[in-house]
Design a protein around this nucleic acid. Structure first.
Lengths: 222, 222
DNA sequence: TAGATTGTTAATCGATTAACAATC
DNA sequence: TAGATTGTTAATCGATTAACAATC
């Protein structure tokens, strides 16, 4: 069953989508689904779904399909949702605060332990029940509590140094919201970045392009 | 020069990264760079960079490399940064507000025209200089001002209906921050989603996996 | 049982890498 | 000129799709 020697990033990136779609199906009361039905609703081929799942084991029943509940459970397991991961937030500016208040860490298997900032106005307060400590206390905190991931919502100028401190303190992953391309000193520390700019620029390309082709189409008219 | 008949999404996704790296190089005062140097700093092969650029034209000089300034300019052009794109924000909750206040729309070639909400406490106010109108006024606003993109930071339950309204009003792209997989009724309207959950779950997988392989390595020891 | 659908191998397709002539 | 590096075609690699026996 453990064949996941080398799972491609393409597959890994699809796992959360599977998880999300299965959750929606579950909420909608769907009990079973075939690879072709799931594929149609997600814009993937049935083959691809079966091939993806094949990396991790056998989760379906021939002639029947997949039980939504248990497939969701299995993919959650693969994603590490039940591993008791924890997270701390570095920087409680607008974005950090927004994510603390809005994002459901728990439904993604993470426990949000604390936030850190240098602003004396917020240090010592709580945001949505989460205590805010002074950034100086980071190392002591991580030594006392196992922290899986540090979320980076500091200014771009502070990004690298705060990242270094998190890595040295011993976190295993950085969830980066700054627009800085982080350099990681230590092996087996993973960075996952959410680049708003990259996303918007991609959209910019797509709508610009769309105009182009529309114009071209018009030119082709008699 | 216009060979970009069918540029793969893999290439398109790299364009913003090129743009970002070239901007950093520019800021650092670097004047010229070779494909191999750029590749090394971005973790790509020189071949891949030349192949990517080849989709769009010839931007370098044999024996010399690329001028950072002009390559950045060209990629910005490809991305549509100079097309006068505009954006409106739907939903001024924590996240919408945070992005309005923090995100540099202008340095990505977008002009942020307005925000919309239903909360009477914010309607009529300004956030970072951006006027907040009542959501009911959306259609009239879009009719009066060309709007390229609608940014969705409403609740997941309102996501689809607000999206539909944007699409019917005539925007050309949706920048989706809700965790809902949007259905688009109209052709040539593009959706680009920022899925925080998908990103965090990917990170969860990677750090969980990392533990696995570490354990396996230990088991292999004598 | 017959029909449906999986798990899994093989074939195809597309993206990445390598190679090298052109040329600055 | 000699050295460097591009633009571009060809080779390789990996991911997606197709096919089908196994089986529920």
């Amino acid at each position: 069953m453990k064949r996941n020697a080398k799972v491609s990033t393409a597959v890994i990136r699809r796992l959360p989508r599977y998880y999300r779609h299965l959750s929606e199906l579950q909420r909608a009361g769907v009990v079973r689904i075939s690879s072709s039905a799931l594929g149609k609703s997600m814009g993937l081929t049935a083959s691809q779904i079966r091939q993806d799942l094949f990396c991790f084991g056998e989760f379906g029943q021939q002639g029947y399909g997949y039980k939504v509940d248990s497939l969701k459970e299995e993919i959650g397991e693969i994603l590490g949702i039940n591993r008791g991961h924890t997270v701390v937030v570095m920087g409680t500016g607008n974005l950090g605060r927004a994510i603390i208040q809005n994002f459901q860490f728990s439904s993604n298997g993470f426990r949000l332990l604390a936030a850190f900032d240098v602003n004396p106005q917020v240090v010592g307060t709580k945001i949505a029940g989460v205590p805010v400590y002074h950034a100086d206390e980071l190392e002591a905190f991580v030594a006392a509590h196992p922290v899986s991931v540090g979320m980076l919502t500091v200014s771009i100028s502070a990004a690298q140094s705060v990242c270094d401190r998190l890595v040295n303190a011993g976190v295993r992953g950085i969830w980066n919201f700054t627009n800085h391309e982080l350099a990681i000193s230590r092996e087996n520390v993973v960075v996952e970045s959410v680049h708003f700019s990259d996303s918007l620029l991609t959209l910019s390309y797509l709508i610009s392009q769309q105009g182009e082709t529309a114009e071209e189409r018009e030119e082709e008219l008699p």
